[in-house]
Amino acid sequence: MTEPTRATVRQRLYAFLIAGLGGLAASAVSFSMAVYEAAHPPETPAVAAGQQIDTGRWFVTLRSARIGTISPTGVPPSNPKQLIMVDLDVVNRSAMPNNLLGKVVVPAPLAAPAGAVPEIPTTYLDRDKYFANHINPNMPERVTMAWTWPQDMPVPETLTVIVKGEIYKLRDNLYGATGWYDGDPVATVELPVERVP
């Protein structure tokens, strides 16, 4: 048996250097790209009320916004609080029923300083004037989403609603499971806020 030829020390040093420099260069490029993207966020298009927006998992069409104390059930609450309510048409485009509209439709003042107000809205099915739970696939529904608006926060003349996209992944990075994942905002919609009781 012949001894296998071994690389000289010099050759091995070169190999180490090239691999190391290559790796460094790759991470430098990736880091600077991330910095550039953070400095230049993509412009989210402004969409007019009444226009259908494709978020991936949903089609949403924002209709109107109002502020008041009586929820769409029509039952006055025992301890009144201000609710900002947004009427919208939704179609679930996925293959499963779900009730995660709150991840997709977010009023801008609530989105910015997180934690200031509860971010999870209550969704009402207009058809029943009652809570909406699951929205079935391919069944267009008119719903009203209601967020509690803090009493000490001024009520804006117009509400900016951010509509977020969701991305379908056949395999996620952890389990290889299929699912919907948060994507970039796809649209912003300005809605005049009407005052109702």
Partner: peptide
């Protein structure tokens, strides 16, 4: 088509 519809919760 493989789409699932859950029992109604209405």
């Amino acid at each position: 088509a493989g789409v699932r519809y859950a029992l109604t919760d209405r």
